[in-house]
């Protein structure tokens, strides 16, 4: 997993609440057995019509967001299915950071495991960011070490990531390797059963 410390990038605003993982990646793309290559299917039914033609009225298809790496969305982002294909698709498309007021629990965990930083920011803060990103080419700098978000116009907000998740993201740890250092304890537990 790639470590993430500090990132500056273009913001893509998606002003909707309760965006479920069926929207992030529809089920017809879950049949693949690989981990890579899901970016092309991200938000597929919003980006493409039934004949596979790009929908010009969906904002992610606007060329101005082509290089976006920070997604800002409404509350309860990633609700529904546990499919890890959702963070895989976001990451493969180019998103490194998500900012929303809240996330579904499973989706949030899936992000951490893949080195995506999912930041919880106040509803008001998210509203501000969405407005700026909808009306201009808007960049943010996110510093995970200091847990702060800044833009070039003086916006600054702090955020909190649980210590363990923060360390994992900063170091790009292989969690299984970490756990296996406690193998003796797992064996002890099993023997006590």
């Amino acid at each position: 997993m790639e470590p993430i410390r500090k990132h500056k990038g273009l913001v893509y605003p998606l002003n909707r609440s309760n965006i479920d993982t069926d929207q992030i990646i529809p089920k017809q793309f879950l049949k693949r057995i690989e981990r890579q290559g899901f970016g092309q299917f991200l938000f597929y039914n919003w980006r493409f019509d039934d004949d596979g033609i790009r929908r010009e009225d969906f904002s992610l298809n606007d060329p101005k967001y082509d290089n976006a790496s920070i997604l800002v969305a409404g509350e309860n982002f990633g609700c529904g299915s546990s499919r890890e294909h959702a963070p895989w698709a976001l990451q493969d498309y180019g998103f490194k950071i998500i900012i929303a007021p809240s996330y579904a629990d499973i989706f949030y965990n899936n992000c951490v495991k893949n080195g995506i930083l999912a930041i919880k920011l106040s509803e008001k803060g998210v509203e501000q960011l969405i407005e700026k990103a909808e009306t201009s080419t808007y960049e943010l700098t996110v510093d995970l070490e200091k847990q702060v978000i800044q833009d070039s116009e003086g916006f600054e907000a702090t955020f909190e990531v649980p210590a363990y998740h923060r360390e994992m993201l900063l170091n790009g740890w292989d969690e299984i390797a970490v756990t296996l250092t406690h193998e003796d304890k797992i064996s002890q537990y099993e023997q006590a059963q």
Partner: peptide, 21 residues
């Protein structure tokens, strides 16, 4: 009983445990 993602599936397969808050 709770749902997990594929990375956690791999973690459980390898260790029979999960880090949970």
């Amino acid at each position: 009983a709770f749902g997990i993602g594929t990375s956690e599936v791999e973690h459980v397969l390898a260790t029979q445990t999960l880090w949970q808050t």
